[in-house]
Design a protein around this nucleic acid. Structure first.
Length: 896
RNA sequence: GGGCGAUUAGCUCAGUUGGUUUAGAGCACCUCGUUUACACCGAGGGGGUCGGGGGUUCGAGUCCCUCAUCGCCCACCA
């Protein structure tokens, strides 16, 4: 395909992305451009936030992975040994829930199956749906090293998870203990604090009176939102200083319905102001109550089963669901005369992140990671910017969490995941050992129990698996097999950029940092880029359940991957939500088409049989070439700066504008041959192609497919080369000529002024105008004279007179641009009223401007207080403004 | 209840340490236009007292206080 000499081939006016995107992805893959192995170059490493293995691509993934790909592709072009590791997460609870659901649809309940049978189903499900999402990422253009695809339940990876558990246990950082946990009665497992979502709900506050023991009609009234827990009450609590209840000190109360006599305890935990100032205590079903129970030695009545139904210990309503009981017990309390009133009440209730079930505080024996010490380096190194957050505002959130970090509940009563390597040899709470294999466990158990005759048959492994995040916190290390083979991890670690959503800052980011310092003694990544949330037009988060998310693959087939990437990036500063609108993708695909047509146009202007070769050797005598080169390098510099600050959308907008506004609207327009039917001369074409090539390089990280397609057409290259691995443009200050940019800017404004006059006067662009220009200096005269062809080319002119001693023509339309006074005599065409209106508007504008300037200058304190340069600048503004005003007024007088 | 962050054109956002043209961009809107790529285009235009109030300063969209609205995170008030 290299610089074909037959250019007459028909190129369609519409760019069709699907024609080229699959082709180039395959090409990149076939040439192994995404594959990385350690070498002498500096590495640039990114690890993907592993999506759920059975998940499907949603808009959040699109945004997240587009950003990663932009960063990775740019680094690759800059010559880094770039390695973007893809993979998937086993997503313990989410995947297990899906498998359970699927089995239920087949009439099988989880309880009917053995652990091994269930896992067989789970693996089958995983193999069937697993990795679909990775295939979808390829459509987006993600340049991952697919040879490194990792799954958190791969054999080696799993080994590292288990070894980490054992290591932390041996260090005393993991312990087993009975605590109040967040219980998900639907998934039947404990959850970490982070997996609980607190939602504000409208509920009821039930006021219930408990009879004082030994009295006939003395009562104490408590307030509760969960009346069903009355069944588990083992005390009533009041504040010791509450004078309303002094007479109850030392008394006991009767719990309604169950008629249990419980003591009235005193504790300053009670808020006298809240409700009735009197609290019922249910130690087994509320964390605060549990603490009170510990303190006051209260009995615990576990009145609820794991699935949220009432247990035998509850005595009443046994087997009924908690919410059923809530309704029923209110009625029964009322009948019994114990219900005082029900108030509407708003409070926060915890829900399971995965199953949306209402969380039940539940006393149970779980495994915990002791977090305080582990998290210290992780806190410090984010606060001191060793690890940089983008945007930095998230440091606050991070600090707040880290400073108040609580121990991490890592055991889950599930089967899908890494099974905890603990083995029990007895019934006691501490009759267990932690070991990598059963054999090792036997040995340790013999020692710990003092029973030398223990055998493998006496040991029973813990049923629980580990929290998914207990495996993914090792991701930046374990994807390089970093626990067992240092070769790769020493090269690739620490990784460079992590791109993820702020919602998993605690689940994942913080914990990876913790694990990084614990196991590598170093940060896992240098930068964390937090993306926003993709929302619909109404501001709602896009989600499957709301059905408000477009299918990413549909979008790609409609607008092309390039168009969709553009659409996502255009409106996304780091950390800000993205209000998604397909119009943005449409804008992206229109941009593709614009670029395509620039290419098409150049191709149409190639002579058959001529070999063209893009060059960066511009025509030094041509202002337009020098201007375009300056603009290119100015933009390279700005884009570099934006990348440094992770302002990808700003970088993209600058590249967009450079291509569309500067290159297409001005450069190509001015490069067009003078005469219809003529082709470009070869030198001019080669310079244009040279610019185009540089532009495609700048564009490539954002729109990899169309840029590669065009590059392959225009560049001279060997068959092994590709844009994806070409050299990123380097800023060169010597190519930026400020004077050229300014002069060209003045000429652009001159053209705009003439267009404005035509538009306002209703003069067709084709009408040939007589134009007179009066430059304010001899230098400007020379410069404009030399480049008058630019005006001639962009405007249909009958004559062009440039003279510093110009006589102002009568009855002309006029404008002032930079140091140029422009006159267009339009004797018969001119509409005097319109011209007066035009001038009047301009005079008004300049007068308003001068008023402000004069206001400053007439302020004695400004003149004496402000720096000289600022005052001088205002004086210049005044001088120029007044001169312009004078000219405008004269021009207006012509018509009076 | 605590903390953080926002509030600039109809919409989405830029606006670096307060002082280069009486605030910029894209989209949307209005007018004109098929001129040698592109109507998925070109040209021109309208539109903002920078959330309200107060303060610091010669000077504030930019700094401080306060109020209002919105968003996010955290928290064991039943």
């Amino acid at each position: 395909m290299s610089s074909t000499t037959n250019h007459s081939k028909e190129i369609p006016a519409q760019y069709n992305p699907s024609d080229v995107e699959d082709k180039w992805y395959k090409y990149w893959m076939d040439h192994k451009y995404f594959h990385s192995t350690p070498d002498d170059r500096e590495p640039f490493t990114v690890v993907i936030p592993p999506p759920n293995v059975t998940g499907v691509l949603h808009m959040g993934h699109m945004l997240n992975n587009t950003i990663q790909d932009v960063l990775v592709r740019k680094a690759r072009m800059q010559g880094f040994n770039t390695c973007w590791v893809p993979g998937t997460d086993h997503a313990s609870i989410a995947t297990e829930a899906k498998v359970v659901q699927k089995l239920r649809a087949e009439g099988i309940t989880k309880g009917d199956l053995s652990r091994d049978e269930f896992l067989e189903h789970a693996w089958e499900w995983t193999h069937k749906h697993g990795g679909i999402i990775l295939e979808q990422l390829k459509k987006l253009g993600a340049s991952c090293d697919w040879d490194r695809t990792t799954f958190t339940m791969d054999e080696k990876y799993s080994e590292s998870v288990i070894d980490t558990f054992i290591d932390l246990y041996n260090k005393g950082k993991i312990y087993r203990g009975a605590r109040m946990v967040n219980w998900d009665p639907s998934a039947l497992t404990a959850l970490s604090d982070e997996e609980v979502i607190h939602k504000e709900v409208n509920s009821k506050l039930y006021h219930v009176r408990y009879k004082i023991a030994g009295t006939v009609d003395e009562f104490v009234t408590i307030a509760t939102t969960r009346p069903e827990t009355i069944l588990g009450d083992t005390a009533v609590c009041i504040h010791p200083d509450d004078e309303r209840y002094t007479h109850l000190h030392g008394k006991t109360a009767i719990v309604p319905l169950v008629n249990r006599e419980v003591s009235i305890i005193l504790d300053d935990y009670v808020d006298i102001e809240f409700g009735t100032g009197c609290l019922k205590v249910t130690p087994a079903h509320d964390e605060n109550d549990y603490n009170l129970g510990q303190k006051h030695n209260l009995e615990t009545i576990n009145m609820m089963n794991a699935d949220g139904t009432i247990s035998a210990e509850g005595e009443l309503y046994v087997g009924l669901d908690r919410f059923e009981v809530r309704k029923q017990i209110a009625k029964d309390l009322e009948e019994a005369g114990n219900l005082v009133k029900i108030e509407d009440y708003t409070n926060k209730v915890g829900y399971s992140e995965r199953t949306d079930a209402v969380i039940e505080p539940r006393l149970s024996l779980q495994w915990w990671v002791s977090m305080k010490e582990l998290s210290e380096p992780a806190l410090e190194n984010v606060m001191n910017d060793t690890i940089r957050f983008h945007p930095p505002k998230f440091k606050n959130t991070y600090r707040h969490w880290m400073e108040n970090v609580r121990d991490w509940c890592i055991s889950r009563q599930l089967w899908w995941g890494h099974r905890i390597p603990a083995y029990f040899y007895g019934e006691g709470e501490n009759d267990f050992v932690v070991a990598k294999t059963l054999d090792q466990a036997v040995e340790i158990a013999k020692e710990k129990s003092g029973n030398a005759s223990l055998t493998a048959a006496d040991l029973k492994q813990e049923d629980d698996v580990l929290d998914t995040w207990f495996s993914s916190w090792l991701w930046p290390i374990s994807v390089f097999d970093g626990f067992y083979d240092k070769k790769e991890v020493d090269y690739y670690y620490p990784t460079n950029d992590l791109v993820t959503a702020p919602e998993i800052m605690f689940f994942w980011v913080a914990r990876m940092i913790i694990a990084g310092y614990e196991y590598r003694g170093e940060m896992p990544f240098k930068n964390v880029y937090y993306t926003g949330i993709v929302r619909d037009k109404q501001g709602r988060k896009m989600s499957k359940s709301l059905g408000n998310s477009p299918d990413p693959l549909d979008l790609i087939s409609q607008f092309g991957a390039d168009g969709v990437r553009m659409g996502m990036l255009f409106a996304t500063p780091a950390g800000n939500d993205l209000p998604f609108d397909v119009k943005l993708c449409e804008q992206g695909s229109k941009f593709s088409n614009k670029i395509w047509n620039a290419f098409r146009f150049l191709t149409m202007n190639m002579e058959d049989g001529v070999e063209y070769k893009p060059t960066t050797q511009i025509d030094a005598d041509n202002l337009v070439d020098r201007w375009m080169l300056s603009r290119l390098h100015e933009t390279i510099k700005e884009v570099e700066e934006d990348f440094k600050n992770y302002k990808l959308n700003d970088a993209l907008k600058k590249v967009y504008s450079l291509i569309w506004d500067d290159f297409c609207d001005w450069y190509i327009e001015l490069a067009k041959p003078d005469t219809y039917g003529d082709k470009f001369d070869a030198d001019k074409m080669n310079v244009a192609l040279g610019f185009f090539e540089q532009l495609m390089k700048l564009l490539h990280p954002f729109m990899p497919f169309i840029s590669e397609e065009i590059w392959q057409h225009i560049s001279t290259r060997t068959s092994e080369e590709a844009l994806v691995v070409s050299e990123w443009p380097v800023y060169d200050a010597s190519f930026v000529n400020k004077a050229d940019v300014k002069l060209f800017d003045t000429l652009q404004n001159t053209v705009s002024a003439l267009r404005n006059i035509r538009a306002e006067m209703g003069v067709s662009p084709k009408t040939e105008l007589e134009v007179l220009i009066k430059p304010s200096s001899a230098e400007l005269l020379a410069a404009v004279n030399k480049n008058n062809w630019i005006l001639n080319k962009l405007q249909s002119l009958e004559s062009l007179t440039i003279d510093t001693n110009l006589e102002k023509p009568k009855a002309s339309s006029s404008a002032i641009v930079g140091g140029l006074e422009i006159f267009v005599p339009l004797a018969d065409l001119i509409d005097v009223d319109k011209e007066k209106e035009r001038l009047g508007k301009e005079i008004q504008r300049v007068e308003g401007f001068l008023k402000q300037v004069n206001g400053k200058l007439s302020n004695e304190k400004f003149v004496s207080g402000a720096p000289d340069s600022v005052v001088q600048n205002e004086r210049n503004k005044k001088r120029d403004g007044e001169a312009n005003l004078e000219k405008l007024k004269q021009q207006l007088q012509e018509f009076e």
